[in-house]
Amino acid sequence: MEYRFVYLGKTYRVIIESDEQSWLVTIADKEPSRVEVINSIPNCLSFIMGNKTINAYTIESGGKKYIFVNGESFAFEVDKGRASRTPGVAAAKGGENVVTSPMPGSLVKVLVSSGDNVEVGQTLAIVEAMKMENELKSPIKGVVKQVNFEEGNQIDALQPIVELTPIYPE
């Protein structure tokens, strides 16, 4: 069976096969590894891979698969798209004409309004969470098509905040 897991915008292809005793796992183009599960209870998975004992902690929620192993935690999304998608590139939600916040928080400043011309890297809005401000910058040169929120609004991560119409160089 083949899976595609997305982590930090990169898609990783994992092929997993099993016989009665163990799994054979192949990540991307690497050599396959033989994996023997020694314990599997809810939220905990222990396995041996190349003589190494690995204890992984897992939970699935909201379509994401969370894995903790050796002090590092990962949130994977399952890429259900077809193989036509370029590996290694995440599908930007709405493309670069839509500016979103990478974190949820409170919209403390909106610095543009519809019809404004904006340059690449220009700060469009400021989102605050946990006492820290994050500037949302324009990824393109363009015109503000629409601003979807007002100052003081609570916003979620990846919600479209400012929509832009690109200006292409002549």
Binding site: V14, S33, I41, P42, F47, I54, T58, I67, E72, F74
Partner: peptide
């Protein structure tokens, strides 16, 4: 994160995905 941790996590997530189908059949202790 370190590459070997990512690799181990990918193995874990693949096994977990194979074990627990979307129909929420949970493997119990």
């Amino acid at each position: 994160p370190k590459d070997d941790a990512l690799e181990q996590a990918l193995v874990a997530v693949a096994i977990v995905s194979s074990q627990t189908p979307a129909t929420a059949k949970v493997v119990t202790a």
